[in-house]
Amino acid sequence: MKKVFLLTLIPALGSLFVINRVEPYVLGLPFVLFWAICWVGLTSLFLIIANKLDPANKEEEEL
């Protein structure tokens, strides 16, 4: 449970961390926007992994 919690904490903190600069442009986007979009994808990735590892899913099936 601890491990799963830490996994979800990473996107919670990361998505709130702003890097406030225009350059370098990545994929044509200003860096500040690119960085934020990256975290949308990463949030998804971390939550999907967390769900795979989450012991709560097993426990519920047994109920």
Binding site: I37, V40, L47, I48, N51
Partner: peptide, 24 residues
């Protein structure tokens, strides 16, 4: 239907947010 479908949903929904990028 289940608590698990809510967790799966939380993981998949951010991908959906990508649409907003196009609106921006």
């Amino acid at each position: 239907k289940s608590a698990k479908s809510l967790r799966v949903n939380a993981g998949v929904m951010p991908i959906y947010q990508i649409i907003i990028v196009f609106s921006l």
